[in-house]
């Protein structure tokens, strides 16, 4: 009876290993690239829009702040044709970038990503020049955008959130992102707002 149970259990373990291993092998063959619909909280526009736009951006990068104007214009020109997904790409040379991205990700957990995103870019010139971590500023923005501050605080200290951001950055680097802001228009890498406008207009037609 004991031998029966052992061989039966071993079969189950073997089957589980085989099933899990096959998935890991398939994932290895076909790396998981983010799709434009990948992150509902950091996306706007219709899911099945003809222009799937992915933005890899850094909150402390001045060029990324400047790009927000043309990007908003494109979104308002083609409100039903563009699906925009934001992807974290904090650059190491920007001192408070990692913290800003973590704060934005924490806002995203409370479904306030875009409000916080706009706030970080609007006030970039204020918090980015500070000599000490701009926690006070980030908490103030959180409060003013209606976030639950206890949850926000816990999330800011959560290493798993930072890990998620790093993962997004690594995915971007793997896809060929070298500078910010970088965009993918229907999977095609575009750098610079003028190229972005041309590519989006072509795809939206």
């Amino acid at each position: 009876m004991q031998r029966t149970s052992v061989s039966y259990l071993l079969t189950g373990v073997g089957l589980t290993v085989l099933l899990m291993g096959s998935i890991l092998f398939l994932r290895h063959l076909r790396p998981l690239a983010p799709t434009a619909a990948a992150d509902f909280r950091k996306a706007k526009g219709p899911i099945k829009a003809p222009v799937q736009l992915m933005e890899f951006s850094d909150f402390q990068c001045p060029a990324c702040r400047v790009a927000q104007g043309p990007l908003s214009k494109l979104l308002s020109t083609y409100p039903t044709k563009i699906r925009l997904v934001f992807q974290h790409f904090p650059l190491e040379r920007h001192r408070w970038s990692a913290l800003a991205h973590q704060a934005a990700e924490c806002a995203s957990e409370q479904d306030r990503f875009w409000l916080y995103h706009d706030r970080l870019y609007d006030e970039q010139s204020v918090w980015s020049i500070l000599k000490t971590p701009p926690l006070e500023n980030f908490f103030r923005y959180a409060k003013e955008e209606g976030l639950d501050l206890d949850r926000f605080s816990r999330c800011l200290a959560d290493p798993a959130v930072n890990q998620r951001i790093r993962q997004e950055r690594a995915t971007g680097a793997g896809l060929g992102v070298r500078s910010t802001p970088s965009f993918f228009v229907n999977g095609k890498l575009v750098v610079g707002t003028e190229s972005l406008r041309q590519e989006v207009e072509k795809a939206a037609r």
Binding site: R27, A33, P34, T35, A37, D39, F40, R151
Partner: peptide, 25 residues
Amino acid sequence: GLSKLLEPAANFEATLLKYGVYPPS
């Protein structure tokens, strides 16, 4: 299961969030 496992987990996160039934955490 297979079709979801071969995509980024964020895709399914998006689906679950869309339902608005469970807390985001």
